[in-house]
Design a protein around this nucleic acid. Sequence first.
DNA 1: CATGAATGAGCCTTCATTCAT
DNA 2: AATGAATGAAGGCTCATTCAT
Lengths: 206, 206, 206, 206
Amino acid sequence: MEQKPTTREKILRAAAQTFANQGFEGARVDAIAHLAGVNKASIYYNIGNKAALYEAVLTTIFTETFERFGLKIESIDTPEQKLEAYIRKLADVMIGHPYLPKILMREQISEGQHLPDAFVYNITQVLGTLEGILEEGQQKGVFASVDLITIHFMVLGTLAFQITSSPIRRKKEAFKKKFRPVEPEDMEILVRNIVTYTLKAVRKDS
Amino acid sequence: MEQKPTTREKILRAAAQTFANQGFEGARVDAIAHLAGVNKASIYYNIGNKAALYEAVLTTIFTETFERFGLKIESIDTPEQKLEAYIRKLADVMIGHPYLPKILMREQISEGQHLPDAFVYNITQVLGTLEGILEEGQQKGVFASVDLITIHFMVLGTLAFQITSSPIRRKKEAFKKKFRPVEPEDMEILVRNIVTYTLKAVRKDS
Amino acid sequence: MEQKPTTREKILRAAAQTFANQGFEGARVDAIAHLAGVNKASIYYNIGNKAALYEAVLTTIFTETFERFGLKIESIDTPEQKLEAYIRKLADVMIGHPYLPKILMREQISEGQHLPDAFVYNITQVLGTLEGILEEGQQKGVFASVDLITIHFMVLGTLAFQITSSPIRRKKEAFKKKFRPVEPEDMEILVRNIVTYTLKAVRKDS
Amino acid sequence: MEQKPTTREKILRAAAQTFANQGFEGARVDAIAHLAGVNKASIYYNIGNKAALYEAVLTTIFTETFERFGLKIESIDTPEQKLEAYIRKLADVMIGHPYLPKILMREQISEGQHLPDAFVYNITQVLGTLEGILEEGQQKGVFASVDLITIHFMVLGTLAFQITSSPIRRKKEAFKKKFRPVEPEDMEILVRNIVTYTLKAVRKDS
DNA sequence: CATGAATGAGCCTTCATTCAT
DNA sequence: AATGAATGAAGGCTCATTCAT
């Protein structure tokens, strides 16, 4: 059965949403408190200040999502299947935590101004997983020699842009024709496309 | 010979940099004035308020960059060369205007809150160019049937993430090993990689 | 044998110290609770609010110190010995209760904002004792005709300033040469000086 | 002719009064702004923050009062006249700046928490002047060997307590009999008394 | 009795904007 | 056209106080 959420959880949930949509500077502590249904002072009592709240949000999201990121992938057979699993895993994480890609993009743009170091470590781990997959593929002769970072951003960037693109497509009339919003049911197709294109990009020419 | 920049130009230049790095909410009118070397009241006299300033920046950047985007590409021979030209053109625009990818990403995240409609039109044009290239390639049997938007984001996303990633890589120690900052001289290699991977992703299986 | 202090006593002790050092406005209820080793709510349960706590501190300190101030002095022989006894008594009280001069000075400055009337009565008693000594000395021809209040402040002021001056002298480098902190072992000399100077000030010219 | 005061001056004047009466912690920036007749933000524009305001008040008061404190005294003949001049000078300064003794006492009590170092230097200078007078008197055989600091506090403490004592005397009924408030016209008598008593205290026994 | 959690009111400070020159 | 000064509104944060257990 569902436990009723603690004050801290309510705050973190509201903060994640607000920070993702408004950014660190744009987010109002008032608004977060209101959205969480708690008193503003309660945020300071439970967490500290705005920066600590932001850090807590990042840490929570990341612990929840990336902690054991690479584990299940290792048991898969071929490098191609592993890469697909990796992309799907990343897609799952982002679709399940819609605030994640937004916060990730904000941090990247603002040069990690508010990024706690613990979090940076998590990212390097994810990157390490990808590196392992690509190297294995090259050794087994199925993957070409590719640039790790570019492939990383190809997967991450495409996913992040796709996932965050729906609202703006829906909002701007001019987009509606060619640039139809992604509906939830389109997600599987979307992810499959990214998988397909990435595999083709990486595969060794026969 | 170089004209010495007008007050308005100095303001817009400083504003572009500040908005790109700090976002709309994070940018301080004070800081922009200081960076531009003008008095703060001068911004209000010359342009209006903060929102008008932001819009002026967007409009300026986009007219400067995307206006005649598609022109030179049509005269090229094969679809593959056209796609390469398209990617290189986009890369040139972004590398030449380092604030562009940042502002683009911010607008995407914030659901186009501040995006002027004129610019939305520009984007659909760029998208139309890509669509033409892909369709021509499919008709000529060299490109597989691919999803326009996904390919668009694959090019745009990878470029945007790569270009904006250097500062954070440089800043966070943990990144420095696997995630070496991109130096200007690496740009050509970087773009060539994106071209290569995108072409492979799009190409029809033989 | 020592009783272990009640919660109320622990609170009052911590409050006296904190109020003396930080003043009423500067004192934090949190800090008092922490220093007392009790829960903050316990202060409100046991005593009331911040104002009540301050008043309780004043009342406690003053009943402990001034209650039977004048008693022992009457039995002494000469007015000069009585005046010395008076000054030493006052010095003892202040040295024994290091918070007393601080709170006294604060109340004087803040126009007795928080001063309970019961205490005002105590002070008039002390003043009455001094008055008796001075009058007796004048009648016996050993003391000149002096202004009661000025002598009162001469004794009280010199003592209070001397006793409270050590921390600031220790803190500010520039003071350290001429203005060496008073160490506990210097106290007897210090009091003797005040006695000597006061007696000379009061004595009738021969 | 009187210049109309600058905003900065109005702020400093209001701040001096408020800090003296309420202390640093008790003073409200709102109240200072209101008393000065300026907008609250104007304080931050002109001066900085609350701490800077406090420091500016201290610095201003001290520059105005103590800067050339010792100068006129040196040209006086006898050590006794010099000491009288010293005390009268100190009294003038305090009576002319009624906030000074309050702030001085507060700083002494709070262990110089908010005391800028430049200010500490001024105090040592005043102390140096007194030292010179006392030493000259001893060499000329008119003063006994006395403790500099005790005499310093005897003068300063008596003055400070006397000057700041009026309001509390006026306020508390019980004080009114023996402890009549000092009216401005009593000041000369008061100072003369302090001079007389201090001279007697210091003088060598004949 | 005691305490961890919660909160309303208020404080310091910032910031976009306007005013006066 | 330009600018130093001024300001209303709002934001982050603290703190005395109360609540619920």
